[in-house]
């Protein structure tokens, strides 16, 4: 297959299929979760549950000193990775154009070298996190195939995107095609892996926070 046919294929039908699997999968998974319901709490509340829910959604972005001291790599590399990924995903002009095209909304972009830097930092952080995952007993013990698979699936789009921008190794068509393909793999894997935490973490924080709010626990 020629690079152009490949690009046309991944940019065309394959991308539509991947996006649809992603959307269907995410909606399905959320339905799966929410359908299990939550019993109404009959205890007299001491505080406002939903206020607590919202508060926890915000507060859990912060880490307390003691926990930070014990999880420096996880926290710092985790933050660098997530912020970097966010910048790359949502502030690169090419990506904004894509979002505008498929969802009709857009916003200003960042200079490309800034995004490039974010991608590099993000990849470095991912490598650090992988090494940490392999070397820290607890993380290593907790990790399943899913965790490593998701690592690869997240790393590849960053790497191929970086290579596309810098015209490394292959023709730009191949690279752009591979980049899009890797994103498609990520999209398909998303609903059925721990990548779902992107959405469910807000649910989790809310549920936990609502229970804290009900009990009047302010953290």
């Amino acid at each position: 297959m020629s690079d152009v046919l490949f690009l046309q294929w991944v940019k065309g039908p394959l991308f539509s299929i991947a996006v649809m699997i992603f959307v269907i999968g995410v909606v399905l998974r959320l339905a799966e979760i929410l359908s299990l319901g939550r019993a109404k709490n009959l205890a007299v509340p001491k505080g406002n549950p939903s206020l607590g829910g919202w508060r926890e959604i915000g507060r859990r972005f912060k880490v307390d000193q003691g926990t930070f001291q014990q999880n420096k790599i996880t926290v710092i590399a985790g933050y660098v990775f997530h912020v970097g990924l966010f910048i790359v995903m949502f502030l690169l002009a090419a990506h904004i154009a894509l979002i505008k095209h498929s969802l009709g909304v857009s916003w200003p972009n960042l200079p490309t070298p800034v995004v490039d830097m974010a991608a590099v930092l993000s990849m470095l952080a991912l490598v650090v996190l992988l090494i940490d995952r392999l070397s820290q007993p607890v993380k290593r013990f907790l990790s399943r195939r899913n965790d490593y698979l998701v690592w690869v699936a997240t790393f590849l789009p960053l790497l191929t995107g970086y290579m596309t921008y810098h015209h490394l190794w292959l023709s730009p068509q191949w690279l752009l095609g591979l980049h899009i393909l890797s994103v498609e793999a990520l999209l398909v894997l998303f609903p059925f892996s721990k990548l779902m935490h992107t959405f469910t973490l807000f649910l989790s924080r809310w549920y936990n926070g609502a229970s804290m709010g009900l009990r009047g626990v302010k953290s």
Binding site: K11, G12, V19, V23, A97, L98, H101
Partner: peptide, 11 residues
């Protein structure tokens, strides 16, 4: 960077 066949209708 735009997908050639995806549209908001697909979504």
């Amino acid at each position: 960077s735009l997908p050639s066949s995806l549209s908001s209708q697909h979504v």
